[in-house]
Design a protein around this nucleic acid. Structure first.
Lengths: 343, 343
DNA sequence: TCTTAGCACTCGAACCATTAGAGTGCTAAC
DNA sequence: GTTAGCACTCTAATGGTTCGAGTGCTAAGA
C-alpha cells in the first residue's frame, strides 16, 4: 500500500520525467512547490518506491525513471483528466468543417490532426468496407477486351477493378447483365457479394445471356473485394522527433512494422470498446517494447466501429493523449454516424 | 587531362568506395589485380587526382573518397554498362506477369520491385490523370441529399466524389443530366472538363432540367479533378539501411521531403527524356546534398510520359541502377503503351 | 624519366586516468 | 517523523598515451 506522500512523489516523478526525458533526482523534485519536503525525505520515499518496483535507476547514482509498473500505476490511478485547452478543441472541431464530406476524408483528416496535436504517430482504422452494402453496380467497357467493374456502396465508397471481357461479346449482353445484377444484388454486403452472386444470378444469366460462363467468371473475380484493413497513418516521422528513440535499428524495426498493414491487428487490440493503454512490453510486438499505445474505438452508425491508436514512447504525455482521444472518438462517432444516416 | 593510369585508379577508387563505404588507401588498392603498381605509385597518382579535385581526404592521414567532381567524372566517363544478371531480368519481368492489369498497379509494382532490387528509395511518377479523357460519367444518388459523381476515363481510371444534391430533386432530372453529360463530354480530357462543362452543357440543362442551377453548381465542384501528381513511393525506409546516413536530423529532413508530394518536381527534373543523374549538391533541395538521384522517363502511349527516380546516397551503385532503370523504363513504356492501346 | 622502397610524419580511434558534479544511502540530530 | 550532513558511487567530460593506417617526400633503382 502506498502512503499519500509516496503517491504524490510517484506522480510528480512521472510527470517530470514525461516532460524532461531526464532521470529525476531528489533535489530537483524538492524545488517544486507541490513537494514541500527536503531532498532527504524525498529520497527516502523514492527509495521505497524503487523497492516496490515503481521506479528504476539507470545506474547506481542516477536519478530515477518510472518503471513499467510505475507507468501502469500512474495510468491506472493518477490520470485526473483535465479539460482540453480551448485551442485544441477548436482545432479538433475544424476536422468537421466540411459539411458534406466522405467518411474516408474525415478519418484521414482526424489522423493528421491527431499526429499534429500530439507529435506522436496516429493510426486510424476505418470502417470495414466489406460490411457496406451494394448501392449500384455498373460495368463500363473500355475497349474490345476489357471493362471496368464499379461498385458504389451505401456509404458512397466506390470500388473499381479492370477485368477482361471475352472478345466479340455483344454490348447488349453486358447491359442485360448489369440490370440483372442491380436487381438482385442491391443491398447485399460486399462481404457476401461473391456468394450471393452465384446463388442469385448465375442461373438467370444462363437463361438470358449468351456465353455467360466466360463473362461471369472474369467478372466474379473482379468483384471480390480484398479483405484488407482500412488503415490511415499520420505522423509516422514523429518517431524521429522523440529523444527516446536514438537507436537507428530500433527506429527501423518500428517503422517497418507500421509500413505493413498486416501488423495492425497486433498493434491495436480490436473490438474492445473504451480506452485501452498498453505500456512497453504489454504490447504484443517485441519491436514495440519501448512504446506505449493508446487505443480507443469509435462508432460508425449502429453496427460498425473503427479504432484510433496513438503510438508514442513509454514516456508519453498520457494525460493529454487520453483527453484528446476521448474527445475525438466522441466527435468522430457523432459525425460519422450522422454522415451514414444521411444516406 | 588525365593519364591512363590516373583514370584507372580513379575508377577503382570510386568502385571500391561504393562497395565498402570506407575511405580507400593506397595499400588496399595495390592489392587489387587490376592495379599492378606499388602503393607509392598509387599514392602519387591519388595525390594528383586530389590536386585536380577528383578525390578528397576526410582528414590529413586518411584514405581518399571521391569528391562530387570525382563522382561526376566517373558517371560521365566510366559507366561501362554491364548486362543485367539473369536473376534481375527475371524479377523485373515478373512485374508484367498479370496480363490484364491496371496502369496504376503496374507502376506500383515497378516501384516496389525497384526499391527491392536496389535497396534505395524508388519514386515513380504516373501518367497525368488530367490528360485522360472521359469514357463515362455517372451519378449515383445515395440518399435524399447527396450523390456520388463517377468519372471513368479511357484508361480505366475511376475518379469519384460525393456531392450534395438539392433536397426534393426529381430523380429523373438526374438521369436526364447524366445522359446529356455523356452525350456531350465523352472524349474530353479531365483537364478541360470543367470548362467544357460550362460551354457545352449549361445551356442545354437550362432547357431541359428544373432547378438546374443548384444541381449544376454542386456537380461542377465535384467534378474538378485536383492537379495532383500521381506519385508512387517504395522503399522509403531503405534510407535507414545506408551506413552513409547516421545523422537522425538529416534522415528526418530527407524523409520529410519525400512525405510531401509538392516537393516531387524539385526532386525529379520533369519532362527531359533520357537518363539523368544528379549528384549531391547538383540536386535542387539542400536536404538532398548527400544524395544522388537518377531519373529516367518512360512513355505511356504516344503523348504521355511518366518518370522513374531512384534516390540513394552519393555512394550509390550507379552502374547497377543505371542498367536497371534503362531496362525498366523500356519495359514499362512497352507494356503501358500496350495497355493503353488496348482501350 | 618513371617506379618504388624507405622513412618520418600526421591523425583518428581506442584506451586509461583524472576530475567535477549530480545523485544516492545512511546516520544522527532535531 | 523529518532533515542536515557526509561519505560514497557513478557518469560524463577532459586530457594524455599508444597503435595503426595512411600520407608525402626523398633517394635509389630500372
Amino acid at each position: 500500500m502506498l502512503t499519500e506522500r509516496q503517491l504524490l512523489i510517484l506522480k510528480v516523478t512521472v510527470d517530470d520525467y514525461i516532460e524532461s526525458a531526464q532521470p529525476v533526482g531528489s533535489n530537483q523534485l524538492s524545488k517544486k512547490s507541490e513537494l514541500p519536503f527536503s531532498p532527504a525525505t524525498i529520497r527516502n520515499a523514492m527509495a521505497d518506491l524503487e523497492k516496490m518496483g515503481f521506479l528504476e535507476k539507470t545506474h547506481t547514482s542516477s536519478g530515477r525513471i518510472p518503471s513499467q509498473k510505475g507507468y501502469r500505476y500512474y495510468v491506472d490511478h493518477m490520470l485526473t483528466p483535465r479539460p482540453l485547452p480551448k485551442q485544441d478543441i477548436l482545432q479538433l472541431q475544424s476536422i468537421f468543417d466540411d459539411k458534406i464530406a466522405e467518411t474516408e476524408q474525415v478519418i484521414k483528416r482526424s489522423a493528421m490532426m491527431l499526429s499534429e496535436l500530439t507529435n506522436y504517430t496516429a493510426i486510424l482504422l476505418g470502417p470495414d468496407v466489406r460490411k457496406h452494402t451494394v448501392k449500384k453496380l455498373s460495368i463500363v467497357p473500355l475497349g474490345s477486351d476489357s471493362a471496368v467493374a464499379i461498385i458504389v456502396t451505401n456509404s458512397g465508397h466506390v470500388e473499381n477493378r479492370i477485368f477482361p471481357i471475352p472478345p466479340g461479346l455483344d454490348p447488349s449482353d453486358i447491359e442485360k447483365m448489369v440490370n440483372i445484377l442491380n436487381e438482385r444484388l442491391a443491398g447485399v454486403s460486399l462481404n457476401d457479394l461473391h456468394i450471393r452472386l452465384e446463388q442469385e444470378t448465375l442461373s438467370i444469366f444462363r437463361q438470358h445471356i449468351n456465353r455467360y460462363a466466360e463473362l461471369f467468371s472474369t467478372f466474379r473475380e473482379a468483384v471480390v473485394v480484398p479483405h484488407e484493413e482500412n488503415v490511415y497513418y499520420a505522423g509516422k516521422l514523429n518517431i524521429l522527433k522523440q529523444p527516446d528513440f536514438h537507436d537507428i535499428h530500433k527506429i527501423r524495426s518500428l517503422m517497418d512494422i507500421m509500413e505493413e498493414s498486416k501488423h495492425i491487428p497486433m498493434i491495436m487490440p480490436h473490438g474492445s470498446l473504451g480506452l485501452q493503454i498498453r505500456i512497453g512490453s504489454e504490447n504484443t510486438l517485441s519491436a514495440m517494447e519501448d512504446c506505449s499505445v493508446i487505443t480507443v474505438a469509435y462508432a460508425i452508425g449502429e453496427e460498425q466501429t473503427g479504432s484510433i491508436a496513438i503510438v508514442g514512447p513509454k514516456r508519453m504525455d498520457y494525460k493529454r493523449v487520453v483527453t484528446l482521444l476521448d474527445t475525438l472518438s466522441g466527435d468522430l462517432s457523432k459525425e460519422l454516424t450522422r454522415l451514414i444516416r444521411g444516406k
